[in-house]
Amino acid sequence: MRSRSFDVLLILPAAIFTLAFLILPLARLTVEAGTGPSGFAGFFAILTEARYRNSLLVTLALSIVTTLATLALATIAAQTLAHRKFPGRGLLLSLMTFPLAFPGVVVGFMIILFGGRLGLVNSLSMAAFGTRAIFAYSLFGLFLGYVYFSVPRVLLTLLAAAEKLDPSLVEAARSLGAGPLAIQRDVVLPALFPAMYTGGALCFATAMGAFGTAFTLATSIDVVPMLIYTEFTLATNAGMAASISIALGAITWAALALARSRAMRDTKGG
């Protein structure tokens, strides 16, 4: 029994903090969402009102495309870097994971330097063809920003999984006559699936909730986080901001929970 009281003592600080600064505020957020002009029906405003629904659809589409592109790029890079020694590999990996520490705003700025008015692509395009190429503030720029943000994270997750893949599995498939595509389909991708669920869900959730990058780039695009921000600060509609926040939080949490359960089932079953 003494051990039990010791356990309680250990968990006490975490319990108090979580209660005071997570559970209580989230409860307050839920109550606030219900105090809007339409009451708890406000929860569904994100689906019923055209402006919010469009914003949600754009954000969902952008996040899904970002996730697919990031997974494709990271899967290729992870397989290229795993089980292979070449000079400069460590440096290359460090460079590719360095942007991990960048907040969304800095990522937005990187995209401005890449695709803005004074950006790299525009300068090259002006010099070569004399045509303007500015896309930093478009949906495509936002997409690039989200990919920039997610590739290092997902790459690390997939690289760890690819390093664990027994190289003789690929050799065995080759000895049975399998070509590169069959090897991907039957051997490599099935082994990477758990990591792809985890990494993909993380990428999707981050893209759905990304505020910093959108804040820097999405001056004319209403992605959901920007919607919450404008509802709260400019329209001072705290109730609506709260209900959209809850909807957004529910989506990202569900995506992560789903991916985790699938990844766990795959690791257990296979």
């Binding site: 003789s168 050799e171 065995a172 000895s175």
Partner: peptide
């Protein structure tokens, strides 16, 4: 290359496809 050589190979780790 091995995929064109038609050799049967048994690996130390067996390299059986877990899926």
């Amino acid at each position: 290359p091995i995929e064109k050589r038609n050799v049967g190979m048994v690996f130390q780790s067996y390299a059986l496809f877990p899926n």
